[in-house]
Every structure is written in structure tokens, then in C-alpha cells.
């Protein structure tokens, strides 16, 4: 599917994973019987209605959460906890405010015991790739949201992980910045040849970036559909108006809409929900007059 994929490294396997939370003493299934694969070098997105457990799934691969059932492994070795072999980019800005941009990028290398000069070289190279070299001595608070998130990506890449886990990394950005960030990300991904597991609720973003998209159901989250994206690489902004793109968009939107309605409480049909709302609105206006 992806011509640039390298055999071997960065294979994420999720097998029959269940996660159960206890809410007010009642056990609640957040994720149920999920199995999925991210092949080496593949860019895979998970989309679904809010609260479907897509972030939970990512937290399991990152090692922050243990599943109650099932196995998660990267390149055959089961995930036991967080580690620098899996780079994570969070939705919230997560740069250390007390470190300068370059020191933030160097953090993972410092933990590995890499020498100061080697750290500096690596960090500056990566910052250069991301167009951030002139900001290496800034503190995070002095950067815009898009730049902070770019530094976050660069920091996660610094330890050369085979796998990147990204939890709605562009969710807090405005739409223009978002589009630019998506292009930067695809470029870096192609150069570095990593596997990416990407969580988003933005359908367009998922299609633009991915080789394959998993759609999850409302809670408890299951895999509802696995949809390959046959668009060629490199992706360009013009592709977002191609027939293939639009057809995928329509298909995914319909799938997610079903689940969002289910999540909102259920038995209401699409037409019924809209009609009912309208009726109440008209009555409300009448009562006010």
C-alpha cells in the first residue's frame, strides 16, 4: 500500500484488547475486543465519535494504561510501560516550560545518556528540518501554538523511535495552521519512514494523512470499519477535492454520524431528531411572544 515502507521495524499489533473503567462503582467497558495493525512505515488513523475510547487505545500503546484483556506489542515485544522507543505527541502542549526549545528537544537524548555535543547536533538538525532553528533558544511560552506543537513533534522524534503515537495533536490549532502542520507532518513522516498511529476526529485530516483509517463505534469502542486510503503519495492540498477523496469523506462521515447518534442516546433516527428539535424551537418562540 505504501511504497516507502521499510520491512521490519515499527510494527504495532493490537490483539483483542478490552479496557474497563469503574465509574461510580459501576464497571464500564471503554474499549471492547479491538484488534488492529500498524505495519512498518504505515500511517494509520483512528476516527470515531468523542468518548469512543480512541485516546484510551493510544494510551495503551504508549504504556500509560494496561488493558484488562488482550495484548499490545511493538515489533513483537509486548508493551510494559512508557518508553523512548515510542514517540508520543499529546493534544495539549506538553513542552517543559523551564527548558528552552533546544533543551526540550534534547531531553530524551539526555535521558539516554547521549553526550552534550551529540545531543546538540541532533537537536539542531531536527529543528532545522522543522524550520525552527532560529527559535532554539526561545522558551515555549514565547512560541505560537503551531510552533509549540511542531517542537513537540521534533522532541518525540529526537530519540529516533520507530513508532509515533499522536493524540489529536492539531486539535487546538486554527484551521490554517492545521493544514500547514499536516503537510509538515507528512513530509517528516516520509523522510524518516516511521509508523504512525494518529488519533483524530477530523475526517479530512485522517484521509489526507493516512494509508489506512479505522472507524470506531460509540462506547464501548469497537472497530466498526477498516478503510484503506488509495490516494497516491506525496499528498497535495489539491487532492482534497478529488473524487476519491470526496467519496471517502462521504463514506466516513456517514459511518461516524451513525455512531455519534448512537452515542447521544440512541434510538432517535436522523430525521426524527432534527424534526423534533425544530418543533420545540417553534413552540418556544410562540410561548415567548
Amino acid at each position: 500500500m505504501n511504497a516507502t515502507s521499510v520491512p521490519g521495524k515499527g510494527h504495532i499489533e493490537i490483539r483483542d484488547v478490552c479496557v474497563r473503567f469503574t465509574q461510580n462503582g459501576v464497571p464500564l467497558d471503554a474499549v471492547s475486543d479491538v484488534s488492529l495493525d500498524v505495519k512498518p512505515g504505515e500511517f494509520v488513523s483512528i476516527v470515531g465519535p468523542s468518548g469512543c475510547g480512541k485516546s484510551t487505545l493510544l494510551n495503551i500503546v504508549a504504556g500509560f494504561l494496561k488493558p484488562h484483556q488482550g495484548i499490545v506489542s511493538v515489533d513483537g515485544s509486548p508493551v510494559g510501560g512508557p518508553g523512548a522507543d515510542r514517540g508520543v505527541v499529546f493534544q495539549q502542549y506538553s513542552l517543559f516550560p523551564w527548558l528552552r526549545v533546544r533543551e526540550n528537544v534534547e531531553f530524551g537524548l539526555k535521558m539516554k545518556g547521549v553526550s552534550r555535543s551529540a545531543r546538540e547536533t541532533k537537536a539542531r538538525t531536527l529543528l532545522g528540518l522543522a524550520g525552527l532553528l532560529s527559535f532554539e533558544n526561545h522558551y515555549p511560552e514565547q512560541l505560537s501554538g503551531g510552533m509549540k506543537q511542531r517542537v513537540g513533534i521534533v522532541r518525540a522524534l529526537a530519540t529516533s523511535p520507530q513508532v509515533m503515537l499522536m493524540d489529536e495533536p492539531f486539535g487546538a490549532l486554527d484551521s490554517q495552521t492545521r493544514v500547514v502542520m499536516q503537510e509538515i507532518l507528512t513530509n517528516m513522516w516520509q523522510q524518516l519512514q516511521l509508523s504512525v498511529l494518529f488519533i483524530t476526529h477530523d475526517i479530512e485530516e485522517a484521509i489526507f494523512l493516512s494509508d489506512k483509517i479505522y472507524v470506531m463505534t460509540a462506547r464501548p469502542g469497537r472497530i466498526k470499519a477498516e478503510i484503506p486510503v488509495p490516494l497516491p503519495r506525496p499528498r497535495t492540498p489539491e487532492m482534497t477535492s478529488s473524487p476519491t477523496f470526496l467519496a471517502l469523506h462521504r463514506q466516513l462521515k456517514a459511518l461516524i454520524r451513525e455512531e455519534s447518534l448512537a452515542a447521544m442516546g440512541g434510538e432517535l433516527k436522523e430525521g426524527g431528531l432534527a424534526g423534533h428539535d425544530w418543533h420545540v424551537g417553534a413552540e418556544g418562540v410562540g410561548a415567548m411572544l
Binding site: G63, F64, P82, A84, G87, S94, F107, R155, T159
Partner: peptide
């Protein structure tokens, strides 16, 4: 303290001692 900073440090390979002293 924002807990995402601790999580970020852990997946950058920080051990407990580094986490305490540097984060």
C-alpha cells in the same frame, strides 16, 4: 503541576529519579 509533563517525560525515557529532579 500539569500531569501531561510527567507523561511526556516518561515516554521520553525518564526514570523515576530523573523525573523527580528534572521534571
Amino acid at each position: 503541576m500539569d500531569s501531561v509533563l510527567v507523561r511526556a517525560a516518561r515516554c521520553l525515557g525518564a526514570n523515576e529519579f530523573a523525573l523527580m529532579t528534572q521534571v
